[in-house]
Each structure stands twice: as C-alpha cells, then as structure tokens.
Computed example of a mutant assay.
Amino acid sequence: MLELVGVSVPGKLDEVTLRVGAGQLVAVAGVEGNGQSALEDVLSGLATDPSGAVRIADKEVDISSPRSLRDAGVGIVPSDRYTRGLVKSLGIDTNLAVDSYTTAPLARRWGRLSRNAVRDRAERIIAALSVKASSPRTLAGTLSGGHAQRVVLGRVLDGAPDVLVVAQPTRGLDVG
C-alpha cells in the first residue's frame, strides 16, 4: 500500500526505503531529531526539496503536494495538532471540512459549501469521538489537547484513507 524508494530530504533523511503492505502497522521510533519529522513532512507533502519516490497502491505520487498525497489516499494525523492539524480561530465544523470541501456532500455548485452538510458531519464526528464542545461552531483553539486530537483524527478517519500516517498519536491524550 505504501512504498518509499530512496527518499531523501537534504540534511534530514538519506535514501529511506520502506514498504508497508495492506493491513500492516509500522512504527518508527527514535530520539527526537533523527528524521521522524522529516518523514512526516514527506508523507504530508510538506518536505523542502524531497527526492525519491513514494508509491501508494503501486502508483507514484507527487511528494511535493499535500493534495496529491491526500488524493492518492494518504491520511495524516500530524505531530502538532495546533500548527498543522487545526486552524484554532475556526470552528470545529470548519476544521472538519478543510480537506473535503471540494467533494460531495459538503461541496455544492460553484465552489460553495453546504452549511447543513458541514454541520451534520461535524455533529456525527463529535458524537462518535465524544468531543467535549458546546456546539460544532466551538472554536478549535478552545479545545483541550485531547479533544483537539480527536477532531483531527475524526477528520482524517472520516475520509477513509487507504494509508494512515499518525505522528505522535498519543501526544496530549489522557488514558481514557
């Protein structure tokens, strides 16, 4: 499902090759600064000057484009939910729509959003993940770290990605 071949980022990663099959779970661990963040950047399309190849389901993907990776079926839960996962000044509902605003049921004609569809999706995800918020319009920046992480995770999982990349999955979450 996911293959990296000779992936490099100058000064951060050198010729990384990795193959992950369907149903497999792979963990990358190490001391902070040993390349995990650069790998996250490559798989989210945010790496500076990457080289090498990334294939999703045997199709090569443009690793310099977050949208190309998302369209290829990669879902990413970033290591820092507040700088890469959420827009703190927007509501939960809008944050849940940021990567699906161009497709039905959220998108309508002429690039307009269906506010009802956005609200309905937000209510469904909030309920499913027990996000504590007074309404779907609650600003994401007012959520605790764990509830903010749930919003990001809910958005990504609701997109039904073929490949799920989760960086620092338990950061800010309590045991419950």
Score class of each variant (00 low, 15 high):
residue 94 T to S: 04
residue 107 A to N: 04
residue 94 T to Q: 11
residue 66 P to K: 00
residue 58 D to V: 08
residue 126 I to G: 01
residue 160 A to V: 09
residue 74 V to F: 10
residue 63 I to M: 06
residue 164 L to W: 06
residue 153 L to Q: 08
residue 164 L to C: 02
residue 57 A to N: 13
residue 146 G to E: 04
residue 55 R to W: 05
residue 55 R to S: 13
residue 46 L to Y: 09
residue 91 G to C: 04
residue 55 R to G: 04
residue 126 I to M: 03
residue 133 A to S: 12
residue 111 G to C: 06
residue 81 R to T: 01
residue 92 I to V: 15
residue 152 V to N: 02
residue 121 R to P: 09
residue 97 A to Q: 03
residue 145 G to I: 03
residue 82 Y to I: 01
residue 42 V to F: 06
residue 88 K to F: 07
residue 131 V to G: 02
residue 131 V to K: 00
residue 99 D to G: 13
residue 160 A to Q: 12
residue 64 S to R: 15
residue 55 R to A: 08
residue 47 A to N: 05
residue 156 V to Y: 00
residue 135 S to M: 01
residue 107 A to I: 09
residue 159 G to W: 03
residue 128 A to I: 02
residue 156 V to P: 03
residue 76 I to G: 00
residue 56 I to L: 11
residue 120 D to E: 15
residue 99 D to S: 10
residue 61 V to T: 11
residue 154 G to P: 11
residue 52 G to W: 10
residue 88 K to S: 13
residue 113 L to I: 01
residue 108 R to I: 06
residue 153 L to R: 06
residue 151 V to R: 00
residue 133 A to I: 07
residue 87 V to A: 07
residue 52 G to K: 09
residue 161 P to R: 09
residue 141 G to Y: 01
residue 68 S to M: 06
residue 42 V to R: 10
residue 43 L to T: 11
residue 66 P to Q: 03
residue 110 W to P: 01
residue 69 L to P: 14
residue 103 T to W: 06
residue 65 S to F: 15
residue 123 E to I: 10
residue 143 L to T: 02
residue 123 E to V: 07
residue 117 A to C: 03
residue 86 L to G: 01
residue 98 V to Y: 00
residue 115 R to D: 03
residue 82 Y to M: 07
residue 83 T to A: 07
residue 108 R to L: 13
residue 133 A to L: 10
residue 154 G to W: 10
residue 85 G to W: 02
residue 130 S to L: 02
residue 67 R to P: 07
residue 112 R to M: 04
residue 118 V to L: 00
residue 63 I to P: 07
residue 122 A to T: 12
residue 101 Y to W: 15
residue 149 Q to M: 09
residue 66 P to D: 10
residue 77 V to E: 08
residue 107 A to Y: 11
residue 154 G to E: 09
residue 104 A to F: 05
residue 117 A to M: 09
residue 53 A to R: 13
residue 84 R to K: 11
residue 161 P to K: 00
residue 146 G to M: 09
residue 67 R to Y: 14
residue 79 S to K: 02
residue 92 I to L: 12
residue 133 A to P: 03
residue 136 P to Y: 03
residue 147 H to P: 03
residue 138 T to M: 04
residue 79 S to Y: 12
residue 71 D to A: 15
residue 147 H to C: 05
residue 150 R to H: 01
residue 53 A to T: 14
residue 44 S to P: 01
residue 60 E to M: 12
residue 72 A to P: 02
residue 43 L to S: 06
residue 65 S to H: 08
residue 147 H to S: 14
residue 138 T to C: 05
residue 89 S to R: 12
residue 46 L to M: 06
residue 90 L to E: 15
residue 160 A to L: 04
residue 145 G to K: 07
residue 117 A to D: 12
residue 44 S to L: 05
residue 41 D to S: 11
residue 45 G to W: 02
residue 164 L to T: 03
residue 154 G to C: 03
